[in-house]
Design a protein around this nucleic acid. Sequence first.
DNA 1: CAGACCATGTAAAACGTTACATGATTCC
DNA 2: GGAATCATGTAACGTTTTACATGGTCTG
Lengths: 200, 200
Amino acid sequence: MFIHYHIDMSILTEYTVAMLKYILLGFLDYGPMTGYELKQTIDNSTGHFWHAHHSQIYTTLRQMEKDGLVSSVFKSSEDALRRRIYTITESGKKELMEWLDTPMEEIQPLKEDFLVRMFFSGKRDPQKVLEELAIQQKLHKSTSKVYEKMQDAICHYGHPQTGNLSDQQKYWKLTLEMGIMYEKMYQEWLEKAIEVVKGK
Amino acid sequence: MFIHYHIDMSILTEYTVAMLKYILLGFLDYGPMTGYELKQTIDNSTGHFWHAHHSQIYTTLRQMEKDGLVSSVFKSSEDALRRRIYTITESGKKELMEWLDTPMEEIQPLKEDFLVRMFFSGKRDPQKVLEELAIQQKLHKSTSKVYEKMQDAICHYGHPQTGNLSDQQKYWKLTLEMGIMYEKMYQEWLEKAIEVVKGK
DNA sequence: CAGACCATGTAAAACGTTACATGATTCC
DNA sequence: GGAATCATGTAACGTTTTACATGGTCTG
């Protein structure tokens, strides 16, 4: 039933480093921030390819402080809100730079739940499969719109005269570009999928 | 004044979306198999969008047996290898079908480590970034080749006369198509990224 | 008889999600 | 005064990875 030929999975070996740690170091390297601000910053930038819950962010920050990668202070006493400001340490900067200087030599496999459902949809009522595909189309279209708005916003952050983007912004735009391309590809695939399911 | 009581949501919805469980049920619904065979089957089919380690597969199967979703027996005594054959139960079939009949109404965010590195690469030596992008190009090209080989293999499994594929095979091909499209998109993005990094 | 592969498991650690918990501020 | 948002945390649970552990078969 299923073809058993050998595929070299070694190129798919996992790249297991604590990614959240490096994301937090990366943002704190731009300047001190609170856990809450880090959560928001992640949601508004790397969120579309790497997200985290606030509970995970707060606990990881405390661990990083124990490890000497960041330090924290509460904002001056007149601020009634208990805002804990994190600052990257020299040790943290060193660790971030070392990580960036070590090239990644593997690729990460996709993990896409929806494809699991499609894979086993051979025994389903095609009409129901089409309905589910339509839901996905709607969802992916709205995601695309969000990314396109984000991209417009980045362009407005360029230099007032030249319109040039900083290195930081160029790389941000580049990662967002992947989000846009991914969504476009996904939508093309959904259309193809609908054709295949209909043509039965 | 107001009673603070707790509503036990578990009696309302048991929405534990343990994907591995459904993958195992999905494959066992085609016929009895051992844990080892399930691992291989996953690696050779859903592996490019959903993978699992053997330790996770064996423990999940034992749990599923406790839950009455599958049953297992050792292969007849003349087989010296301790091959435990799993068979899906009626209860397991029911659970699989119920899951397939409940449409997914969310989309899953990407989680792509490499983009995290790119996002924070503004402070890196562009030459080193280019080297890393070249490594990724090489890796993604070889992944593409693997997927294309798999696709050719599926096509040869069509009906001897008509060349038609079964429903199962059509959906398999469709998910593989996503793998191919994803890799193509990734490679286009890598080329764009190289342009952006060079053009500085 | 060695090395590759078949075959199954356990244990611990690491990572991620959901729920619980609290209290201040801001704006209408 | 109520709702939304700011702000931080803990606890429990679920999932995934890595390492440890064992023994059989098959091929050259």
